[in-house]
Simulated scan of single mutants.
Amino acid sequence: MSATLFIVAGLPGVGKSTRAAVLEAETGAVRMEPDAWLAELKLDIWDEERRARIETMQWRLGRRFLEAGVSVIVEWGTWGRDERLLLAHEAKTLGARAELHWLTAPPGVMLERISRRGREDPPIRLNHIHGWMSQIQAPQADELALYDRVVRQ
């Protein structure tokens, strides 16, 4: 069986880390999680420039794993259609499958989960979540048709 790229997408607090941990345990896939790297390096999770560099490094490693037949979980949020499609296309070019795990939750649930984990300083507020909801590009039928498998939660 070929390697699989699992794209775990959604806003903060929808359960991406939980879903990625389940996939990791079930499949043995290598998990690419920028928040964990930022925390390990004691970097500000709001530092978008460093986050982008970490995601670039993670994808460079992820491609090498996929080439070697090892499945990879990308847990970046991947709010944009073009970003998701590029990842899926590159994975398929390497002979891997591509799955999209699209997660959503009500704003109040997201805020409660974010508050419980207590990672963000300054804290995320409900108005942030509402703003992000207007920015994320939910996958449409034409995009969904391009993945080998789609899981919606």
Rank of each mutant, 00 (worst) to 15 (best):
Q140W: 13
G80T: 13
M57T: 06
I129K: 15
Q153S: 11
L86G: 08
L23H: 06
V109C: 08
P122R: 14
P122E: 11
G13V: 01
L111D: 11
L103H: 07
L87T: 11
L43I: 06
Y147L: 15
A105V: 11
M1L: 14
S17L: 04
A88E: 07
P12D: 05
R60E: 15
W59Q: 14
L66T: 05
M57C: 10
M133R: 02
T18Y: 07
Q140I: 15
L11C: 13
G10A: 05
S2Y: 09
S2T: 14
A138K: 15
S2A: 14
L86Q: 15
E48N: 15
V151M: 15
A29M: 01
Q137E: 15
A145M: 02
R50I: 08
W132H: 09
D82Y: 09
G77W: 07
G95R: 00
Y147R: 13
T56W: 01
H128L: 02
Q135H: 12
G118R: 04
W37V: 14
G15Y: 02
A68T: 08
L38R: 01
I45L: 08
V14P: 09
A20D: 08
E90F: 00
W79Q: 14
A88S: 12
E99F: 05
L100T: 12
L85Q: 10
A145R: 06
R51E: 13
R149A: 15
H130N: 10
L11R: 03
R125G: 08
G28M: 04
T56V: 10
L100V: 10
V70T: 14
V150Y: 03
H128W: 13
V72I: 09
W37G: 01
R117Y: 06
G80M: 12
T56N: 01
L5K: 04
G62S: 12
I136L: 03
M32C: 07
E26W: 04
L41F: 04
R81I: 11
R119H: 04
I7H: 01
L5W: 02
V70S: 06
V22D: 01
A145E: 11
E90I: 02
L111F: 07
P122G: 05
T4S: 11
E49D: 08
R84Q: 05
D82L: 08
G69Y: 00
H128K: 10
R31S: 01
R60H: 14
P106D: 11
S71K: 02
G95Q: 10
R64D: 15
R50H: 11
E75D: 09
E26V: 00
A96F: 01
A9W: 03
E49A: 15
M110R: 14
R81V: 14
Q153A: 13
L103M: 11
N127K: 13
A52R: 12
E48C: 05
